[in-house]
Structures are given as structure tokens and as C-alpha cells.
Computed example of a mutant assay.
Amino acid sequence: MPEQHSTLRARRRAETQRLIQAHAVRLFTERGYDATAVTEVAEAAGVSPMTVYRHFPTKEDLVLAGAEARSVAERIAASPGDQPLVRRIGRALVGAATELTETGDGRFLLARLRLMITTPALRAKHLDNQYALQQAIVTALGDGEDSAFRTRAATGACLAALHTALVRWAEEDGRTPLPGLISEAFAAAFGDQAP
């Protein structure tokens, strides 16, 4: 029975987070990120400001928080270790993008991405998130100390290719499938090593 309560609690928490984030992205898009207060987001979502901060510690997290890093790290950890690093990372990124765009709301993802591209405070937070994603990937690859520099460099280059694909996807208003753009960016950057 306690496990059932835990699952229900986790599901309610995720639903509350989705609701708050959806209202935040809508308001930020309509009114502007800097012109919208967290209290307005709370009011639109029908929750208290404290509830918003419990789920999203910073205003930036309202746009950028997601489970993408965990999904990518899990995919990399499950990938065959005998493949080149760039291919393992690329396949994980393409797989995560496929999952996000097929099971999620593509318009919502585009709105989040556009906010990130156009809002200086969000670009700074995005850089923090990129660093956290890089750390998650390096940890998932599990390479030893001797190859840590090589792994970090390869991961950083892969994330730069991903960023290029994401910006292109936003510029094209999502007309081209994101997984294809990521593959195209990897092919341009890495040639034969691409996924």
C-alpha cells in the first residue's frame, strides 16, 4: 500500500509540474518573460506561489526544467560500449528527441525553445543545463580518469551539434522533424562517426 501512495503522489506531482509549466510558458510567450511575475503564473495555474517555487526553484526553471538529461543518460548507459563515443551520444540524443517529439507536445517544446533562444536569463540557465547534461553523459559513459578529457571534449562537441539542430528546428517552426535535424547536424560535424 505505501508504494501505491508513493506512485500516486509522484503522478500528482508530475501533473502539477506540467500544469504550472504550461501556464508559465503560455504567459511568458504572450506577455514576455521579464514582464511576467511568478505570482501571475501561480494565479493562472490555480496554485500558490509557494507551490510554484516548491516545483521550480527559480523562474528560469519554469521554462527549462525537464527530464531530458536523465533520458539521454539512460540511453547512453544502455548502449553498446564498443561503439565510438560520438555515435553513442548521437544515438541517445536522437532517441530522446524522437521520444520527446512523438510523445510530447511539439508546440510546447518549440515555445520553450524560442523563449530560451530569445531571453538572456534563459540562455544563461540553458548553459548551466548543458553543463549538467554533459556531466550526466560523461557519467553514463563511465570512462576512467585517463579518458575523461577526451570524453568531455566529445560530449561538448556533440552538445554543440545538438544546439545547432535545436536552433534550426525553432527557426523552421518545427516543420522538419527534430531527430532528422540532429542527425544532419551530427553528419555535418562528425562525418562517418555520426549516428
Rank of each mutant, 00 (worst) to 15 (best):
Met1Trp: 10
Pro2Asp: 12
Pro2Glu: 14
His5Asp: 15
His5Thr: 15
Thr7Ile: 13
Arg9Trp: 12
Arg13Leu: 11
Ala14Glu: 13
Gln17Phe: 14
Ile20Asn: 00
Gln21Cys: 09
His23Met: 11
Phe28Pro: 02
Thr29Lys: 00
Thr29Ser: 02
Tyr33Thr: 01
Ala35Lys: 00
Ala35Val: 04
Ala35Thr: 09
Thr36Glu: 02
Glu40Cys: 02
Ala42Ile: 02
Ala42Gln: 00
Gly46His: 01
Met50Ser: 01
Thr51Ala: 01
Val52Ile: 02
Tyr53Ile: 00
Arg54Leu: 12
His55Gln: 06
Phe56Ser: 00
Phe56Lys: 00
Pro57Phe: 02
Pro57Cys: 04
Thr58Tyr: 02
Lys59Asn: 08
Glu60Met: 06
Asp61Val: 09
Asp61Lys: 05
Asp61Tyr: 12
Asp61Glu: 14
Leu62Arg: 04
Val63Pro: 00
Gly66Asp: 12
Gly66Trp: 05
Gly66Phe: 06
Ala67Gly: 13
Glu68Trp: 13
Ala69Pro: 10
Arg70Ala: 15
Arg70Cys: 15
Ser71Gly: 13
Ser71Cys: 15
Ala73Trp: 10
Ala73Met: 14
Ala73Thr: 14
Arg75Met: 12
Ala77Gly: 11
Ala77Glu: 12
Ser79Tyr: 14
Ser79Ile: 12
Pro80Trp: 09
Pro80Cys: 01
Pro84Asn: 03
Leu85Arg: 03
Leu85Trp: 00
Arg87Ile: 14
Arg87Met: 11
Arg87Glu: 11
Arg88Leu: 08
Ile89His: 01
Ile89Gly: 01
Gly90Ser: 02
Gly90Ile: 11
Arg91Gln: 09
Ala92Ser: 03
Ala97Asp: 11
Ala97Arg: 05
Thr98Asn: 03
Thr98Pro: 08
Thr98Ala: 02
Thr103Pro: 02
Gly104Leu: 06
Gly104Gln: 08
Gly106Thr: 07
Phe108Arg: 05
Phe108Tyr: 09
Phe108Trp: 02
Leu109Thr: 05
Ala111Pro: 04
Arg114Glu: 08
Arg114Ile: 12
Met116Pro: 05
Ile117His: 04
Pro120Cys: 10
Pro120Lys: 05
Ala121Trp: 07
Ala121Lys: 07
Arg123Asp: 05
Lys125Leu: 13
His126Leu: 15
Leu127Thr: 15
Asn129Lys: 06
Asn129Ser: 12
Leu133Trp: 03
Gln134Glu: 11
Gln134Tyr: 14
Val138Ser: 05
Thr139Trp: 03
Thr139Phe: 07
Thr139Glu: 12
Ala140Glu: 06
Ala140Tyr: 04
Ala140Ser: 08
Leu141Cys: 02
Ala148Gly: 00
Arg150Ser: 07
Arg150Phe: 04
Ala153Leu: 10
Ala154Phe: 06
Gly156Ser: 10
Ala157Asn: 08
Leu159Ser: 01
Ala161Phe: 03
Ala161Pro: 03
Thr164Tyr: 06
Thr164Trp: 04
Ala165Leu: 03
Leu166Pro: 12
Arg168Asp: 13
Trp169Ala: 03
Trp169Arg: 03
Glu171Arg: 14
Asp173Lys: 08
Gly174Thr: 14
Arg175Asn: 08
Pro177Tyr: 09
Leu178Arg: 06
Leu178Phe: 01
Pro179His: 09
Gly180Ile: 15
Gly180Tyr: 15
Ile182Gly: 00
Ser183Trp: 15
Ala185Phe: 14
Phe186Lys: 00
Phe190Asp: 03
Gly191Arg: 10
Gly191Gln: 08
Gly191Phe: 14
Gln193Thr: 11
Gln193Gly: 08
